[in-house]
Amino acid sequence: MQKEYIYPIAMTIAGFDGSGGAGIQADIKTFSALGCFATSVLTALPIQNTQGVQAIYAIPDRAIQEQIRVLLSDIFPKAIKIGMVHTATLVDVIVETLSEYPKVPLIFDPVMVASSGHRLVQDATVATIVEKLIPKTDLITPNIDEAAVLAEMKISSLDDMYIAGERILKLGATNVLLKGGHLQSSTLTSLYFDNQGKVHSYESAKLETNNLHGTGCTLSSAITSFLARDFPMESAIVAGQCYTYKAIKNGMDVLTGKGRGPLNHFFDPEKLIKNAFLSESEQDQKNR
């Protein structure tokens, strides 16, 4: 049968969350809710629920490499999201394996600090992330705690966020979205530092809810989804923030588990998008 359509494909390289609120589960839900076809690479197997992580079982580096290769050789994505990378070796494996394939928009959500304030990655891993992964990404989406690690400074105000964002750019990041949800303020302010030297500020009212588990995963995956749908970077960031805000708002009144509950990813799901299939020559013509 002649191929007439193709799905916008988004890939996640991240850890497991059996409680369904964060990690690969949140990524797949977000991709699906926004009309994208989801593929996934598992990097770690945490044992967790809404009350926290009890243990983490490692996935062999070779298995991660083989997952990436087998998927990219068959179902090539239009955008890739990377979640927590907890060892320096894993950073090397991901960067080296992805370098074997054509460039695709790469979104990195640097999960480095738990909500309790505990560091989740060692200094050697952070150093490898800075040296090898950040320069390869098209967008990095740290929260305040993660930005503080990368910028090597305390962040307690909006002015600090501006300084930290500029420091992260100097690490080789192409674009930085610094999320301000952890600041003590009634207003949530996020700053987007683009690759043209401009800083865009986005403000919204903070939603008072305990159901915030997986917010960072959801936002980075939403942006990845819109990039897979050919949105320009700034438009993808704006649309991703809007989706995440609504997912939080529509899940505020739901009790799921005994701890920090998840967002409502399917508050208004889109159908799986079918785009016209273009041959390589037609695609080249379109890109000229």
Rank of each mutant, 00 (worst) to 15 (best):
T189W: 03
L255H: 13
V199E: 05
L207R: 11
K249Q: 14
A236C: 06
T187F: 08
T244A: 03
H213A: 01
L207K: 13
H213F: 03
G180R: 10
F266I: 08
N211D: 01
T224V: 00
N211A: 05
G165Q: 02
G216W: 05
M161P: 00
S225L: 03
S221C: 12
G214S: 10
I168A: 03
G181C: 08
G165S: 00
T215A: 04
A173G: 07
A222S: 15
N175P: 07
F267K: 05
K179F: 05
D194Q: 04
C242W: 03
E208L: 14
C217D: 14
L219T: 02
K246Y: 12
G180S: 14
F266T: 08
F231T: 01
L188G: 12
V199I: 15
D194H: 04
C242K: 05
N210P: 02
R260V: 01
H213R: 13
G216V: 09
H213E: 02
S221W: 07
A173P: 02
A247H: 04
A205Y: 01
D268G: 09
K246S: 15
E270R: 13
L219R: 00
D160S: 01
L158G: 00
Y192N: 04
S190M: 09
V254L: 14
L219M: 14
Q184D: 15
I248T: 08
Q241M: 12
K170L: 13
P262W: 00
V238G: 01
V238H: 02
S220N: 06
G240S: 10
N175Y: 07
T187A: 14
D194L: 03
A222D: 12
L188Y: 04
L158H: 03
E166I: 04
A236W: 05
M161F: 05
R229G: 06
L169M: 14
K258H: 11
A239K: 08
A239G: 06
N250W: 10
H200L: 14
A164W: 01
I223D: 09
A205H: 06
L158N: 02
I248E: 09
F193H: 01
M161W: 01
